[in-house]
Amino acid sequence: MKNHGFLKLASAMTVMTLGGVGYAAHRRSRNPYYRGPVSDHFDGVRFFSPGQPPDKGLGDVARWQFGSGREAWPASVPSPFPQDTPPERVDGLRVVHIGHASLLIQVAGRNILIDPVYAKRASPVGFTGPKRANPPGIAFTALPPIDAVLITHNHYDHLDGPILARLWAEHAPTFVAPLGNDAILRTYDATIPVETRDWGGSVDLGGGITVHLVPANHWSARGVNDRRMALWCAFVLTTPQGLLYHVGDTGYGDGAIFREVRQRFGPPRLASLPIGAYEPRWFMQPQHMNPEEAVRVFREVGATQALGHHWGTFRLTNEGPGEPAEALGRALAEAALPAERFLALRPGQVWDSGADR
């Protein structure tokens, strides 16, 4: 039991890095990823989301890890959808869920991967940490030619370094990430070029598609001493097929960042929103929305269609594997919204542009 408890705590610290371990001791340490001017969300060493609560400490991590309320997960949570074999190009809009927060977006003749993770564990090590409960919804060898890879932030369930290096070697896509993440990618392949931007920045992906980096209420870390030293973001894509809004991870906060997206860009045709990794709320609320909050975001941005991700592949938090989809159904019913307007995607599941007609 002691060893099991130690592994649980080590997993929380080194894999998810959800506590502020080492923060005070390294408050004045040099940022190894990024150097730049102080701003309203960068203090010269660390990034922050304005108005976000203080970091959790080691005591909070221990309280969560050794507390009650963790739902059991089976070793396998199979998807009812087979692995997809995408077409080489799509003129319209087609989205496939690879798993967790990984999506392939095919739009206007371009193929865009967001947060592609193919690792068996969302972890810096192979012997502990959240283990994949279902295979990727697209086999890596079945991917079409990839034109761009978008990275929202550096947590291991979103930034899979070895697979990004393989994508560069085999597809040579444009990589887009928030500030500081280029240094992390280059530890896996020093030749990877990365277009890094601050919140408010944008990158032209060609074919009439531009990706814009916008705020998210989250944080970053690859270990215990680099908390918030690389920026995180959400993405807005302006495309010939309409506006796409993708959030990798975020807390709801006061909702201002979502209302600002609508004010700046207009209502999205499609919003892909996280719906999992939200329990216990006392710990997760600042950084992870629950399904009820995701429905609130869906309504506030005015999206025509929403797709739910970040659930059912890696056991990161306390809720069971099926609870996010069930909670999403309840939240949609409470809001008097049709279930088909906001789908909880499973690996291999396809949504295409005919779905919202």
Rank of each mutant, 00 (worst) to 15 (best):
P274M: 12
N290V: 00
W282T: 11
L205D: 03
N217V: 13
F265Y: 13
Q263S: 13
G207Y: 08
E292M: 03
R222D: 01
V261F: 13
R227T: 09
R186A: 14
R186K: 15
A221C: 07
Q285A: 10
S202P: 04
Y245I: 03
T210K: 15
L244E: 02
N290G: 00
G206C: 10
E300V: 09
W232I: 08
L185I: 00
P280K: 15
G276A: 03
V211A: 08
D254Q: 10
I192W: 04
W219S: 13
G206K: 04
I275W: 02
R269S: 05
T196F: 03
T250Q: 04
I257V: 15
A234K: 11
T187L: 11
Q241R: 09
I192T: 04
E293W: 01
F235R: 09
S272P: 01
D226V: 01
Q241V: 02
L205R: 02
T239L: 07
V247K: 05
Q263K: 14
L237C: 08
D249H: 10
V214M: 05
T304I: 12
A230H: 05
G255S: 15
G223Q: 04
G223Y: 00
A256Q: 14
T239Y: 15
F235A: 08
R186W: 15
E195N: 12
S220E: 04
R228H: 12
L243C: 10
V297Y: 01
P215V: 10
A216D: 13
R222P: 00
H246Y: 10
E195S: 15
G207S: 10
A271W: 02
L270E: 00
T238D: 06
P268T: 08
P274L: 15
V295I: 11
P280G: 08
N217Y: 07
T187A: 15
G200V: 03
T304L: 13
R262Q: 14
A234I: 10
A303I: 00
I209P: 01
V247A: 02
H246G: 10
A303Q: 01
G266S: 11
L270A: 06
P268C: 08
G253A: 03
Q241I: 01
W282F: 14
Q285S: 09
S272M: 11
D226R: 00
P268G: 06
V203K: 07
T187I: 07
I192P: 03
N225L: 15
A216I: 09
T304S: 09
G255M: 06
G276E: 00
L270C: 11
G223R: 07
T304R: 13
D249R: 13
F265P: 10
D198R: 12
